[in-house]
Amino acid sequence: MKTEKNFPESLLMAYLYGEASELERQQVEQYLAENPKARAELLALKEVRKKLAALPDKEVIIPALPVTAHHRESDMRLLKTLLAVAASAAIILISLWLTNTHISWSDKEIRISFGSQPNSHTGTALTHEEVQAMIDQALRSKRLNETSAALTEQQVREWIRASVAPVTQPANSISDEQLKQYTSALYAENARLMREFINLSAREQQQAFEEMLIDFSAYLNQQRQNDLQNLYSRLNALEQNTELYKQETDQLLTGIMASVSSTPAREIKN
C-alpha cells in the first residue's frame, strides 16, 4: 500500500499528527474523500499508532551520575597531588632541620654537611670535597693544556700527585701515629680483659668441679647404702627361708622316725 505519486506522504503525516495547516488539512481531506484506498491506509496507520501506545514508559531510578563524581574526583586529584608535593617538601625540610644540615655555596663547591658546620680550612683536616675540587682543578688545567700545548697524561698525573701529596701525607703520618697508639691501647685492654676472663672462668670452673665431686661422692654413698640394704634384706630372707626349711625337714624326719620305730614293733608283734 502506497500513496499515489502525486500526493506527498509528508502531508499525510502532518495530517495524521495534527500538525497540518488549515489549507493542508483541507487538501488531505479532499484527497481522502476521493481515494478510498488512501482512507484505508490512514485508518491502518492510526491502528498502528494505537498499538504503539500500548508500549508504556519504563520507570527508571536515576543513578548517581558519574559526572559530578568525576568533577570532584579531578578536583580531589589535583588537591591530592598538591598535598603530596607539599608533604614531601615538608618531610625534606623537617629532615634537613632534624639532621642539622648546612648547605653552602662557594665559588667552586657546594658543601652539604650534617651536624655542626666544619671549620672551613684547617691544613690537616682536608675534606673529600676539597680534594675533589683540587682534582677538578687539575683536570681542568689538563684540559686547558691539552688544547694549547698538549701535556702528556703522565705529566698531568704527576702534577695531580704533587698537588694531592701535601694533603695526604700529613693525614697519613698522623693516622699512623694514632694507629700505633690506639692499637697498643687496644692490645693492653684486650690482654687485661682476657686475663680477667680466664681468672674468673678458672675460679668458676674449680668451684663447679668441687661441687660436682661432692655431689658425686654423696651419690656414691647413697648408692652403696642402698645396695647394702638390699643385700641385707636378701640375706635375711634367705636365712629365714633356710630356718623354715630346716624346721620342716626336722618335723618330717621326726614323723618318719616315729612311724618307722612304731611299725617294726607292731610287725614284730604280728
Partner: peptide
C-alpha cells in the same frame, strides 16, 4: 522527517 516517519509506520 515526515516521510521517514511514514515509511517507518508503513
Amino acid at each position: 522527517a515526515k516521510s521517514r516517519l511514514y515509511y517507518g509506520l508503513s
